[in-house]
Design a protein around this nucleic acid. Structure first.
Lengths: 204, 204
DNA sequence: GCCACATGTTACTCATGGGTATACAAAATA
DNA sequence: TATTTTGTATACCCATGAGTAACATGTGGC
C-alpha cells in the first residue's frame, strides 16, 4: 500500500483524497471507541496512517471535525437505511422489522459506533446542536414508523415517543457489547431482539 | 451552609467527612454527565464545593478515584435492589418486573448515570478491570433471573445472555434521555417498557 | 526541464489541567 | 494556654497535546 505514490491507477486526486480521508475517519473512530476521544491524540491518529500530525490538517479542519465527519457519514447510512425500508405499501410492523434488521449491522460499524457514543458531545455549541438535530431527525422518522404501525393496527397501542426512545436504547446498546470475534452473529441478535420486542418475554 | 464551621451539630468528624465526600461525588458525577469526564476539571469540581483544588485531595486520591467511588456507590445501590427483589418464592417474571421497576429510578440518579456512562473507562488497567468485573457481576445476577424465569415457565424460551444484554441496553439507555423536568414520570416509562418487554409490540 | 500545486515534514508555541510542596487556620486535646 | 490534628489555601511544577509556521519534495502539465 504505497502512500503518496498513486502511480498510474485510474484514481484521480480527488478520489485519492477522499479515500485517505475515509481511512482516517475509520481508524480515528476505531481509536475513539477503544480508548475514548480525549485519550486519543492526533499523533496517535496520524501514526495509524503513517503520517505526521500536521498532515492530518490537510484532510480535516481540527480534531472535532473528525467527529463531525463521522456523524455525517453515520447520518447518511442510517437515513439511507430508512429510505430503503420505508415504503407506502408496507405496514408499520413490517417496516420496523426491516429497520431493526438493517440497523444491527450498522451499530457494529466503527464510524456509527462513534456517532452513537459521541453524538452531541462536541465542544462547539453549534456543532453540538447540529449533531443533536441530526439524531433527532432520525429518531423522528422511526417514531413515525411506530405511529404508522399503531394506526394501521399492525402494532399494539403504545406511546410511539417512548417506544422509539427505548428501542434506540436497546439497539444502540448493542454497539457497546458486540464483538466481531464473538459467538453471536448479527442475525442471532436480530432474532432474539425481534422475539423480545414483538412477541414479548412473558409466557402467554 | 457553613463550611468548616460545623458548630455544635452532633455530627462527628468522620460523618462530616463522609458527607462532604458524598457531596463531591454527587456534584462531580453531575458535571461528568453534563460536560464529560475530561472536559470537567478538578478546579470545576472544587469550585462547585466552594473549595480549592488541593482540598479535594484530602477527600479523594486523584481524579480517577472519583469515578471509582461513584462506581462503588452504584454497585452498592444496584446490588441492593437485587437483594431486595430476588426471593426464592417468586417466579423469574415477577422478579424481573420488580427489578425493572426499581432500576428505572436508579438510572436517573447522577451517580449511577456516571457509572453507566463511564464504567470500564478508567485509565488504569486494574481499575478498568475492577469496574468491568463489578458490572459483569450485576449482569450475571440478572441473567440468572431470566434463566430462572425460562426454567419455571414464567418467561418464554430465549437466550438469557442476549436478552439480559438487550435489557440493560434499554434500561441504561433511559439515562441518556430522561429529564427530571420532562413530562414522563418513572412510572410512565416503567409501564411502557413493561408492555414492550413482556407483551411485545406486535398486535396479536 | 520547469512551474504550479498538492502533500508532507520538522520544529516549534502555548493553553490546559492534573498533581504537589508548603504554609497556615481552625478545632480538639491536654 | 500549648500542642497536635484536621482541614484549607497559595503558589507552583510539568506533561500532554492541539494547533501553526516554515520549509521540503513529489507529481502532472506545459
Amino acid at each position: 500500500m504505497p502512500r503518496y505514490k498513486w502511480d498510474k491507477t485510474p484514481e484521480n486526486r480527488a478520489e485519492r483524497k477522499k479515500r485517505i480521508l475515509d481511512s482516517i475517519l475509520q481508524e480515528a473512530a476505531r481509536a475513539f471507541n477503544a480508548r475514548g476521544y480525549h485519550k486519543t491524540s492526533l499523533d496517535d491518529i496520524a501514526k495509524a496512517q503513517n503520517v505526521t500530525k500536521p498532515t492530518l490538517y490537510y484532510y480535516i479542519r481540527n480534531k472535532e471535525d473528525i467527529l463531525v465527519k463521522c456523524e455525517d457519514k453515520a447520518s447518511e447510512l442510517i437515513n439511507g437505511l430508512l429510505d430503503e425500508v420505508v415504503k407506502p405499501e408496507k405496514t408499520g410492523l413490517e417496516i420496523l422489522k426491516e429497520f431493526i434488521r438493517g440497523y444491527i449491522p450498522l451499530v457494529t460499524d466503527d464510524v456509527i459506533r462513534c456517532h452513537i457514543r459521541f453524538r452531541g458531545r462536541m465542544d462547539s455549541p453549534e456543532l453540538r446542536k447540529r449533531s443533536n438535530n441530526m439524531h433527532r431527525a432520525i429518531e423522528l422518522r422511526v417514531r413515525e414508523v411506530v405511529a404508522r404501525g399503531v394506526a394501521d393496527g399492525s402494532l399494539s397501542t403504545c406511546t410511539p415517543t417512548v417506544v422509539t426512545l427505548l428501542l434506540f436504547g436497546t439497539l444502540n446498546g448493542i454497539s457497546y457489547w458486540y464483538r466481531d470475534e464473538g459467538a453471536l452473529s448479527h442475525d442471532d441478535i436480530y432474532q432474539e431482539a425481534l422475539k423480545m420486542f414483538m412477541a414479548g418475554l412473558a409466557q402467554s
